[in-house]
């Protein structure tokens, strides 16, 4: 009798607990009608693609990256690589002698020939914005900019022999330019440093085909065609000091000065090229007519540069 009572009591307790638990577990879930509707992809940095692009004049491939901003705008970035090249050449006088022939330059009774060693560095990094007219089209307009990795100094060069043989003149002997408002000073080895320079930041405009990222596609190919503004190639000198208010040279400021044809006007270093010289160099066949001022002409014709690029992208997410 006692055992029966205890068993019945335990069973009552056990069943009451379990029944209560079953009340909880069997509660109904609310129905969400939006659970199966896909959310709109707002695109803002939601996707990333990595890719490669062939370099100019080389078999190397360089990395590129892309991401989305809106359904109409994608951002691309990467490296435009140009293999660095070293070269040596001789600079002769403009005007009275062939530019690249070895000619002695009379200077106060002493003759100098400028032998130059140079390095070509035309690599840029880029940031481009592709603007698509519609959400689905592959055609796009592109705007952005290229930034020179060498600060715009496409070719850096320096004289291989001191401008003046006397070591006591190194870092204290220079040449005045721009109406004696600037002085190109020799460096601590007696040499002069110069460069062929463009703007460091070059805006780009163009058109293209292909979307770097399409959510429903893994591999994409894009093509760019446009122009960028380089500001024009110009000859620049480093280690240039400006004139102080007192009339001496401010040796605490070192500038890079871009030479113009006006700086050479009236001096023996005129950069005017005659028709005869242009003919002898074969430039006439390209429609170049003399007389021209070489520095100004070079800057003018190289201000806008063409740009063609192929890219292959793989979507990461």
């Amino acid at each position: 009798m006692k055992k029966t009572a205890i068993f019945l009591t335990a069973a009552a307790v056990f069943l009451s607990v379990n029944l209560h638990a079953q009340d909880v577990t069997v509660a109904e879930e609310a129905f969400d009608p939006t659970a199966f509707v896909p959310q709109e992809d707002k695109m803002i940095f939601n996707h990333l693609a990595l890719g490669v692009s062939p370099t100019d004049f080389s078999t190397l491939l360089v990395p590129v990256v892309a991401t989305t901003l809106t359904p109409y705008v994608q951002i691309r970035g990467g490296l435009d690589w140009f293999p660095p090249l070293k070269a040596s050449w001789v600079l002769g006088r403009f005007g009275k002698a062939d530019l690249l022939n070895i000619k002695d330059i009379p200077f106060g009774g002493n003759n100098y020939t400028f032998n130059l060693d140079g390095t070509l560095n035309a690599s840029d990094i880029k940031l481009l914005f592709d603007i698509f007219p519609t959400k689905r089209t592959s055609f796009h307009f592109t705007a952005g900019f290229l930034v020179s990795l060498s600060g715009g100094k496409v070719i850096k060069a320096f004289t291989t022999e001191p401008f003046d043989k006397d070591p006591s003149d190194w870092e204290s002997l220079g040449v005045n330019i721009h109406n004696a408002q600037y002085c190109i000073m020799t460096d601590k080895t007696g040499n002069m440093q110069m460069s062929l320079k463009t703007n460091a930041v070059k805006p780009y405009l163009g058109i293209g085909f292909g979307r770097a990222i399409r959510p429903d596609s893994r591999v994409r190919v894009t093509f760019d065609m446009g122009v960028y503004y380089s500001g024009g190639f110009r000859v620049a000198f480093d280690n240039v000091h400006p004139r102080t208010a007192g009339g001496s040279w401010d040796m605490t400021q070192k500038l890079t000065y871009s030479l113009t044809s006006d700086d050479l006007t009236g001096s023996e270093w005129s950069d005017t090229l005659t028709q005869e010289q242009l003919d002898s160099w074969g430039l006439s066949q390209f429609g170049v007519k003399g007389p021209i001022k070489a520095l100004d002409y070079m800057k003018r014709v190289t201000s806008w540069c063409p740009y063609l690029k192929l890219n292959i992208f793989i979507k990461i997410f």
């Binding site: 106060g108 220079g174 005045n176 330019i177």
Partner: peptide, 18 residues
Amino acid sequence: TINASGTGIPAGLTKVFN
């Protein structure tokens, strides 16, 4: 600072004596 210019000098010449 010496600034020299004239015939025979293709560009103005500067020399600084410190």
